[in-house]
């Protein structure tokens, strides 16, 4: 390119190079600029602002005090409950969702079972937030249909220690969107298991369980784990359901952060930043773990 233009322009030294050659790079970037500016302004910078704030004191000096202050018992227990609920609802949700997906793909159920389940899962995985809390209050609340029904046959779940406002109550509620989300994501992965793999394994003398252990599960594992991480983050950041269900009586991180944003209940704005930073760290860490595991276990993937 340079050679050609210099040869041409050698006769007329004042001719400027063609504008296209100079403008090509900036023009190309112009096409994606709006997206990057948007992402920077409304996704990355606001998050970075909080992260930086987490390491500053009120005078704007660098400090670890806010991070250290996260160790106070209320905050630690909030993180702990949040992690447990997210972990329980994501692992149970993933296992249950996997079982359902397996049943509709490989279980020999009637033809309608699969499209019906997929459609319903699409709806239920998006049915979260406040209305979900209402639904479970109407089911397992003190006057809920199931509670009342069980009491009628002599089982009072509330006197047995259950409450919808508890760890298991919230986990059970979260499963209503976690399981369908798993079904929606993992069904295509189960479809990806070729019938011939099972047949090849059988002719080579493998039992069904050997086939699952050595081929099917390793093949599905990355998708499975990736979905668990997604479900974990999904539950960890969820607030509306828990808030509508329990008000502020359940001490989980998003509710604590919500209260902090509304009214500085921790009496230290920078501690709020640290709280948010901790949330990003945990969901981020889950993802890093997943990516690390994936690259390690998946050399066979393209």
């Amino acid at each position: 390119m340079t050679n050609v233009s210099s040869t041409i322009s050698s006769g007329a030294p004042n001719v400027t190079p063609p504008p296209a050659a100079r403008k090509r790079l900036p023009l190309q970037w112009l096409g994606v600029m709006p997206f990057f500016i948007f992402a920077l302004m409304f996704l990355i910078l606001p998050t970075a602002y909080l992260v930086i704030g987490a390491f500053q004191n009120n005078q704007g000096e660098f400090t670890f005090e806010n991070i250290a202050a996260l160790s106070q018992p209320t905050i630690v227990s909030a993180y702990w409950i949040s992690i447990r609920i997210s972990l329980a609802s994501s692992v149970i949700g993933a296992l249950a969702g996997f079982a359902i997906a397996l049943a509709i793909v490989r279980g020999g159920l009637p033809k309608w079972a699969r499209p019906a389940t997929m459609t319903f899962s699409g709806v239920a995985s998006n049915f979260a937030g406040v209305p979900l809390a209402f639904a479970f209050l109407a089911t397992l609340g003190r006057l809920g249909l199931v509670t009342v029904g069980l009491r009628a046959i002599g089982i009072d779940i509330y006197s047995l220690g259950f409450t919808i406002l508890s760890f298991w109550g919230l986990t059970l509620t979260y499963l209503f969107f976690q399981i369908p989300l798993m079904v929606v994501i993992i069904t295509p992965a189960i479809d990806g298991l070729k019938k011939e793999w099972g047949e090849a394994a059988a002719t080579l003398g493998a039992t069904t369980s050997q086939y699952w252990r050595m081929v099917a599960i390793p093949v599905i594992w990355p998708s499975f784990l990736g979905t668990v991480v997604l479900l974990f983050a999904n539950a960890f950041g969820a607030i509306a359901t828990a808030y509508a269900l329990t008000g502020s009586s359940l001490n989980i991180v998003p509710i604590l952060l919500y209260a902090q944003i509304r009214g500085d209940v921790l009496h230290n704005p920078h501690l709020g930043y640290a709280l948010a930073f901790g949330m990003i760290m945990i969901t981020g860490l889950a993802n890093v773990l997943y990516i690390w595991f994936r690259t390690r276990s998946e050399r066979w993937l393209k």
Binding site: F35, A39, F42, L43, I44, L45, P46, T47, Y49, L50, G53, L230, A233, N234, F236, G237, I239, P254, L257, Y258, I261, G272, A276, M279, I280, T283, G284, N287
Partner: peptide, 21 residues
């Protein structure tokens, strides 16, 4: 990767950032 970030960063954190920024 950027489009997947909102699945990792909770909504409450994003809006908290907006309020401060």
């Amino acid at each position: 990767f950027i489009t997947l970030l909102p699945l990792i960063i909770p909504a409450i954190v994003i809006v908290f950032g907006y309020i401060r920024m």
